[in-house]
Computed example of a mutant assay.
Amino acid sequence: MSRDRSQWSDLPKELLEIIAGSLHTKTDVTRFRSVCKSWRFSVPPFQTRIVLPPKVPYMGPPHLRESSVFLTEATVYYLSPPAGSISSGSSLSGWLVKIKEGQQVGQQAHLMNPLSPVQIRPLPDSFPKVINSFQFRVFEFAKSYTLQSSNLSYKVGFSQDPDCPSLMLVASGVLWHLKLGQDRWAVIDDMISQLSYEDVIPIPCQGKFCAVDEFGRTVLIDSSLKITEIVSVNSIRGGDGDKKNLVVSNGELLLVDTYLRGDHTYIGGRKTFKVKKFRVFKLKLDQKRWVELQSLDDQILFMGEDCSFSVSAHNFDGCKGNCIVFTDPCFNVFNLDDGSVSPVALHEEYANIFNPPSSPRPNPSPHRNVARRRFFSFW
């Protein structure tokens, strides 16, 4: 055992630098630095390259501006017990949590609804107050950014391009852009899709945003706010759904077209429609069109109000891929195989995605004294 540890600690510095260069999240860097002393001193603690301001300017006319408009960030984590940490014959699946950390040192973090910007309170009795990261494998699956004030809440796309870090959102069908450090939002001037945009997301590592309107027209917006059309209007055959959203899955850009039922209910004073079905399309950039997918294979799409992401079903015991988990406002599952919609509560394997396991628990870490200092404290 000691010889194996020595081999890990004796890896060449050049190789450690290559490995560290591929770590882009705080969780990955922290776990890398926890392997041994030489690894710990080979890279500095994780530092966010771009610090988001807690407050940003209001988008509307000056006489209607809110005094406090806050930009909040939350992280969707996947937690799973390490191999060999549970007894033989037991089944313990990984699960998802979304945490909104305090914006200042010492502020409390909050447990959020995984598919909306709503805080969960009171916390479920079964939820642990402390999760020891030495007893779980912890991965960051997604980030969500939300602009909130007393009477509004918008999903925000955040481009972390070091040359032009910026935000973009859709409000009343209009695209708004804010370069960090500036005191005024800019309206994206696009006469074709003005007032009809429905979603916008950042394109990783490109410094661009991708936006789609209600007719399926899709554009790229670069840091100079130049618009490049990549899919024209009405290029989706039968794409007459009620709401279009963009999501990246396995490095590919997907469009999810949502069809709503005619009936509706009021929740919290807001009109809410039930989902009838989804259709999923993949971008064929060379053909400048969206092509419908008949299957997502082993992928599960999580469609949230403030972020959407894709996860392999292999991460969750008993779950099958080729489905969409969404909220309207309760958690539901849409099965692409047969087009059915059913509550997550009727499927224990999917319900467990959002619930911490009650038993069995992972065995205590042999590095107990060290492990106590490395944990996620949710309040």
Rank of each mutant, 00 (worst) to 15 (best):
S2F: 05
R3E: 13
D4T: 15
R5K: 11
R5H: 06
Q7L: 14
E14W: 08
E17M: 14
I18R: 14
S22V: 02
H24V: 05
T27R: 03
C36H: 07
P45M: 11
Q47N: 08
T48A: 11
V51Y: 03
G60N: 14
P61F: 11
P61H: 14
P62V: 15
H63F: 11
S68N: 08
A74I: 01
L79Y: 01
S80C: 05
P81W: 02
G89Y: 07
G89Q: 05
S91F: 03
G94T: 05
K100R: 15
G102M: 03
Q107L: 04
Q107H: 10
H110D: 04
S116V: 00
P117R: 02
V118F: 07
D125R: 10
K129Y: 01
V138S: 03
S149M: 01
S150V: 00
S153W: 08
F158N: 03
S172A: 13
V174I: 15
W176R: 15
W185Y: 14
A186H: 11
D190F: 12
I192C: 11
I192G: 04
S193F: 10
S193H: 13
S196M: 10
Y197N: 08
D199E: 09
V200G: 03
P204W: 08
C205Q: 13
Q206L: 08
G207T: 04
G216L: 06
V219R: 13
S224G: 02
K226N: 12
I227L: 09
S232H: 11
V233L: 10
R237L: 15
G238Y: 08
D240F: 08
N245H: 11
L246M: 12
N250R: 12
G251W: 07
L255D: 11
V256P: 11
R261L: 14
T265W: 01
I267G: 00
K274C: 05
K282E: 12
K284L: 14
K284P: 00
D286C: 07
D286S: 15
L293V: 04
D306C: 14
S310R: 06
G318S: 08
C323Y: 04
C323R: 10
T327W: 00
C330Y: 00
C330T: 01
F331K: 00
V333F: 00
F334R: 04
S340W: 03
L346N: 10
I353H: 00
N355V: 07
N355M: 08
P356Q: 01
S377W: 09
F378T: 07
